[in-house]
């Protein structure tokens, strides 16, 4: 092989096919002149790269190009997948609500429910005890966990992409589900040992008043204050034993009894109250939470 001078530039540019490279490298191993020639090309390449090294053109250049070709400036739009399928979104959202409720709320609700169940077990009027107890605990828990002034993550929730209404509904669903399951377990514990109590009647006794009482405490705590929601539930609870007696008039007895033994109309009003509260909740000013 004579000196392959014409191949060395292409070799320095990494343009040669592999078989030519192999033959050339064998020649280079024995030829100091060609090695020097290749070194000269490589020094040249390095020098050119140093001399022409440049930063990217200024951003204004592309802005001018956009203007010249009549492309409107693009407003950045979040294009990521927010949460995917609604069911998957719900499955991700609901469990987290559990942790956003303060732990004393869960502990208090649990302790009171256990104590109430024990009292109901010892009492011959277990259905009445449960009907008085479960709606009150659940309504108070709903108010304590959904109230705008007791939400530790209220500000943060409003900054996320998920609608505050969705978060609020998820919170209510989680709290109601948890309390209902716990109350069903308590009713089962009261029914199973001797079978003397009618399980359906027991559940029906507390499930009926639970709906309107929770709706009322939810609405007042979300739109006003947690304490107002809890207070309303307590007031109705304390009026219940008095209703039908001479101590209160019919104007109190009638609505209290309708709440404790609700018909379809009362249930529908309760659902509408919850829906209206969810809609109005983000429109009211945010109260500063104590822990944020």
């Amino acid at each position: 092989m004579s000196h392959p001078t014409d191949l060395l530039a292409a070799y320095a540019m990494r343009e040669l096919p592999p078989d030519t490279v192999a033959a050339l490298e064998r020649h280079l191993a024995d030829c100091p002149d060609c090695r020097r020639d290749l070194t000269a090309w490589r020094h040249l390449a390095t020098g050119v790269q140093i001399a022409t090294a440049t930063t990217p053109p200024p951003p204004a250049v592309f802005a001018v190009i956009r203007r010249r070709v009549n492309i409107a400036p693009r407003i950045p739009v979040y294009a990521g997948q927010v949460a995917g399928h609604p069911l998957r979104r719900m499955a991700a959202l609901l469990p987290w609500q559990w942790w956003l409720v303060r732990w004393p709320v869960w502990v208090t609700a649990g302790v009171v429910l256990i104590l109430g169940t024990v009292i109901a077990a010892l009492s011959p009027f277990s259905a009445e005890v449960m009907a008085m107890l479960v709606p009150l605990i659940t309504a108070a828990t709903v108010a304590a966990s959904c109230g705008a002034d007791t939400d530790p993550a209220g500000e943060l929730t409003r900054a996320t992409l998920t609608s505050p209404r969705t978060v609020l509904l998820a919170r209510l669903t989680t709290v109601l589900s948890t309390m209902t399951v716990a109350s069903l377990a308590a009713s089962l514990a009261l029914t199973l040992p001797d079978g003397a109590r009618d399980g359906f009647a027991l559940v029906g006794a507390w499930l009926g008043p639970l709906v309107p009482l929770c709706a009322l405490s939810f609405a007042l705590s979300v739109l006003w204050r947690t304490s107002v929601g809890v207070g309303a539930a307590l007031t109705l609870w304390s009026l219940r034993p008095l209703s039908g007696t001479d101590l209160v008039g019919d104007w109190i007895t009638v609505p209290v009894e309708r709440i404790w033994t609700p018909d379809t109309a009362v249930i529908l009003i309760a659902v509408a109250l919850v829906a209206a509260s969810c809609y109005l909740a983000p429109l009211r000013p945010l109260r500063r939470s104590r822990s944020v």
Binding site: T39, H43, L44, T46, G47, V48, I50, A51
Partner: peptide
Amino acid sequence: LARADAEAVAAAF
């Protein structure tokens, strides 16, 4: 060129 410094090559370029 084989002996030249890269900076000198860049300057000559």
